[in-house]
Each structure stands twice: as structure tokens, then as C-alpha cells.
């Protein structure tokens, strides 16, 4: 008889209930099982109606985020044995509208992600014949950690500022803006400044720092935001002193 652990999984079935409730399931407690394996066991063996997102099972796709005992986690990288003897409480990511069970609505994040234009912007593209844009290892290091973001939104779940006011641009979007701002090949910093320097941009952040602790990929959005505050403040002072200046 294998050992078991109880999972308390948040359920929200909009056609039959007004607010989320919890269902309990007993799943095998195996050393190599992550929370996601437990959820898959429920779906396959116990209750096929449970809804949740997942894809790669290896911490790259960023789709299996949920709160495990209140902490935002990737369920594929969070092991059941670390929570033994249980029970383990599994809830959808905080601060997002819930569509069903553990599935949240991503629209708001996707709109914000697009707003910061997270791609390389060039004033003028170099003709292909002239070859690639070269970059030194030191220039790569400037932004590399921010490029590790997998858009899993655990940082949004951890951020009380976003929870209080969903107009706030939020950690990942700003970190990704910085990923391109700090890239030596990019020339779009001015265009991103308008979005980032709004009150709902970097200025909404009060440096709680939870986003950086929640990140499963070692990105430091809190640091990115504070650093950008300095950039934005310097730009504002420059504009004040030299209103005629172009940049």
C-alpha cells in the first residue's frame, strides 16, 4: 500500500457556484512526483472535470503556475514530498479573475506585456548583407537575467500592489521592458519610457520585493523596477532642465 497525501484543490464551476470551494483528493505520495503529477493523477483517475493549465513539465513553458499552500509556485517544480504529510492546498494564482478551477484569465497581463513593446526596436534596420548585430559577453550580461522570464505570472500573484490596483503595469512586464532597454542592440528606450514612466508604470511599485522572491527563474523584477525609477527620474529632470533637448 503506497503512502498517500491529501490535496485540497480549489474548484470554481461558474455554471453551478458563485464562489470557489475546495474539493479533497487523496493521491499517491511518490518521491518523484511534483504537485502537477498529483493534479494529473486526479484528472486521469479520480475526477476528469478538474481544469488546470500545463504543458512542458520542466519549468520552461510557464503555464502551470498556482498557489501551493498560499505561495505562488510552478506546480511542475514543486514536489509533494516537501509538503508531507499534507494536506496541500492548491489555489489559482492570486490577483487574476478565475475562469474555472485553477484556470485564470490572462488577458490583462498579455495587454500589458504588449504595451511595453518587448522586442528589439531599431531606428533603422541594418541591411542583411552587413551581417548580424554583434554583442560582447559583457553587453549580454547586462540584460541576460531578465531574458530568463517565462511569463508564468507568479510575480503578479505575489504582488500586493497589482492585487490592490490592477492598472499597475506589474513586475514581469517592466522586467521584460528592461530586458530590451538594457540590450545594446535596442534603440527603443524612448518609446518604452512613455509607458513605463506613467503613474501606473514603475511609480506604482512600492518595492515590496515579493516578485523577486516568487520568481522561479531567478529574475529580479523588483531590482529592475527600482533601477528604472532612477532612469525615469533622471530623464524627467533632464527634460525639466533642457526642455529643448531632443533626448
Amino acid at each position: 500500500m503506497p503512502e498517500e497525501i491529501t490535496l485540497q484543490v480549489a474548484r470554481y464551476r461558474p455554471e453551478q457556484e458563485d464562489r470557489p470551494t475546495f474539493d479533497e483528493y487523496k493521491v499517491p505520495l511518490r518521491k518523484d512526483w511534483a504537485v502537477l503529477d498529483g493534479l494529473n493523477y486526479i484528472k486521469d483517475e479520480l475526477d476528469g472535470t478538474l481544469s488546470y493549465r500545463w504543458s512542458c513539465r520542466m519549468g520552461i513553458c510557464g503555464s502551470c503556475g498556482a498557489r501551493v499552500n498560499g505561495e505562488p509556485k510552478l506546480t511542475c517544480g514543486t514536489f509533494l514530498t516537501d509538503y508531507a504529510p499534507g494536506p496541500v492546498r492548491i489555489e489559482p494564482l492570486a490577483n487574476f479573475p478565475i475562469i474555472r478551477d485553477l484556470v485564470v484569465d490572462l488577458t490583462d497581463f498579455l495587454v500589458k506585456l504588449g504595451a511595453v513593446q518587448p522586442w528589439l526596436i531599431r531606428d533603422e534596420d541594418k541591411p542583411v548583407e552587413e551581417g548580424e548585430y554583434l554583442q560582447t559577453p559583457a553587453e549580454l550580461d547586462e540584460y541576460k537575467q531578465f531574458s530568463m522570464c517565462i511569463n508564468c505570472m507568479l510575480c503578479y500573484s505575489a504582488c500586493p500592489v497589482y492585487g490592490l490596483d490592477d492598472k499597475f503595469l506589474g513586475p514581469a512586464a517592466i522586467a521584460l521592458a528592461q530586458r530590451y532597454n538594457l540590450d545594446s542592440r535596442d534603440e527603443g528606450a524612448d518609446r518604452r519610457l512613455t509607458v513605463l514612466s506613467q503613474p501606473e508604470g514603475v511609480w506604482g511599485c512600492t518595492f515590496v520585493g515579493e516578485c523577486s522572491r516568487a520568481c522561479p527563474k531567478g529574475v529580479d523584477p523588483a531590482g529592475a523596477i527600482q533601477r528604472y525609477k532612477l532612469t525615469a527620474a533622471t530623464a524627467a529632470v533632464k527634460k525639466l532642465l533642457m526642455p529643448w533637448g531632443q533626448r
Binding site: Y12, N95, I98, I99, L164
Partner: peptide
Amino acid sequence: QRLYKPRISVLWWLSR
């Protein structure tokens, strides 16, 4: 769709 929108309590800062 009938989305459930969680609300943050005034005492959110006691939750963690």
C-alpha cells in the same frame, strides 16, 4: 463567461 473576481481584504498585509 462568468469570471470570479477575487477581492483583497483591507487586512491583506496580515496574510503573509
